[in-house]
Design a protein around this nucleic acid. Structure first.
Lengths: 328, 328
DNA sequence: CTGTTAGCGCATTCAG
DNA sequence: CTGAATGCGCTAACAG
């Protein structure tokens, strides 16, 4: 294994100076003849420009840090797809860290990324804290958030409140009056807060309507375990804060021989394929996370270029009417 | 934003030399008094050691590159969990790239990682080609593979052939004689090759048994679309190469009012929670990908330390008997 | 225990 | 268009 080939070695082999090789590698203002000699020398030696030396010099890494809450989620996958679709053409590469839904780990990841010299960061956040603000302030690089929102921060996000309203209004119009909202902790201001509030506000526009809240986690196992408690409340519909939660419930209901939607309706949020594969197929609100990813990346790119105009960060929502809800 | 604080600035503020600060940051063989002064100076300036300069000097990045085939997969999530569980305590951090199931992208990712100076790489490969061998040879850093196997390469992998056999034998013993194996391309030597072959070999140990092969993709949508073709073969059981494939089929059968397992049995491979949430719950073979991740990381760590002994890379398999198969 | 001295490999002035 | 010279910020001998 041919160890360390430096730009120097290439220069000598090509009979030119280091600077010429460097120019070849970058702007490339050199004579055709030398261009060829350098090219040959490089391919012969298998030279690879040293990443660290280059970055030390240029102060730019062409690296974008990406902090994700988890890996086993369709939406995260979509988000990522959107991100790389925008980042790659611009010559940037993403390096990702996973926070495992922990605010602490998220913070650590952001710090670590900054320290590692990435040019910018995209955080699919689980919750934005005071510390986030401080870090962003002292970061020296642009950071854009997704998943959560906070005044003063650059955020690209679906309108959780509107999504909640969409579902709430739909169920109300179908005649439902007694709902349980199976949600997550309020710590998650977007999903645990806005989405739920939107749902309640719209659903409760019917005079005699009522929404009970039951907290669970993001996994469907947690939801499955809460199902019995939900049933005690005897709702006509249980609106779940995420598709995953719905899946856990659906499974429980199936095991208990409770027919969905005949005996109880169930809805989710997210609208991905898994919801289509279960029985009954899940009625949900579709979030285009791929679009979110693209917009977040575009936003970051824009800031990297120095521009700072606000651009349209609107993400459309689509209602997906499938089989898990019945009209009363 | 306080611009660039270097180790020099800290040294001056603390009234010591750069080396002393550097020592404080690293081995730390300095007097208590100066230790304190340096500590103070650092926290006052908010100094952060420059990653690139440090790496340029030390030649080690403490970074492990991780190449993943996709994000939206439970097994990948588990694998990742296992990886970081082993990597983090050792002071390493993972940077991941996604190949999107493309061999080309996988190759590119590996190259890019090497070029970026990671200390080692773990590749959850979709297929190992000649080019992989070449890259590994010239990499200059340890690379361990997962998901696929190849002589001469460091691989940590479940025994796909054994898993296939396990399922094949099970179905045979239950009296099934006509199976369709819904698999993936042979390009994937592990899943498309070994797993299928194992299944066939075990299933065909019954004299009058027969296995038809039908190719599909990794997504359940692809499987869903192949379902009609599978039915034409009139099998008593369809063994799917992955749980995901099973899900697509289950959905189709449900829509066609074909009862599983009464009219047709379905099995998967993977054994994760999703399989438990669908109806009927999926009979499968469980792969402990988290263990795979841990072992792969341990292996890499070992090689990073220079050791090169073979260690036990055995990954146990567990049969998960649920509801989607009936005895004939 | 500590300061001084050298580079790590590269991009970039600055003169030709 | 090209080569020589100069650090980027840091760590690691090397002498104290």
């Amino acid at each position: 294994m041919d160890k360390k080939i430096t730009i120097q070695d290439v220069a000598e082999l090509a009979g030119v100076s280091k600077s010429t090789v460097s120019r070849y590698l970058n702007h490339g203002y050199i004579s055709p003849e030398k261009t060829e000699r350098v090219r040959a020398a490089i391919s012969e030696t298998g030279f690879k420009t040293n990443f660290f030396a280059k970055r030390l010099k240029t102060k730019r890494s062409q690296l974008i840090g990406v902090v994700l809450p988890r890996m086993d989620s369709v939406s995260v996958g979509k988000l990522l797809a959107g991100l790389s679709r925008a980042l790659e053409p611009a010559g940037y590469q993403g390096i990702m860290l996973v926070s495992q839904l922990s605010v602490e780990k998220e913070l650590m990841s952001i710090r670590s990324l900054i320290q590692q010299g990435v040019d910018g960061i995209i955080v699919d956040s689980v919750a934005i804290t005071e510390e986030h603000l401080q870090i962003v302030e002292g970061a020296g690089i642009p950071i854009v958030f997704t998943g959560q929102q906070h005044p003063g921060l650059d955020c690209v996000k679906i309108d959780d409140y509107a999504a909640g309203r969409m579902m709430g209004a739909y169920l109300r119009q179908l005649g439902h009056r007694l709902a349980v909202f199976a949600g997550v902790t309020e710590t998650d201001a977007a999903v645990g807060g806005d989405r739920r509030r939107g749902f309640q506000d719209a659903f409760l526009e019917a005079e005699d309507a009522r929404v009970d809240f039951l907290q669970t986690g993001f996994g469907f196992l947690a939801a499955y375990n809460r199902a019995a408690d939900i049933l005690k409340l005897q709702p006509t519909v249980v609106a779940c804060a995420t598709d995953n939660i719905s899946l856990g419930l659906l499974r429980y209901f199936h095991e208990m021989h409770i027919k969905v939607p005949e005996e109880i309706s169930v809805t989710g949020f997210g609208g991905y394929d898994v919801g289509a594969v279960v029985y009954p197929a899940l009625t949900s609100v579709f979030f285009d996370y791929e679009l979110v990813g693209m917009k977040a990346a575009s936003r970051l790119l824009r800031r990297l270029e120095g521009a700072d105009e606000e651009l349209d960060m609107e993400i459309p929502l689509f209602f997906i009417d499938r089989e898990s809800v019945r009209a009363l």
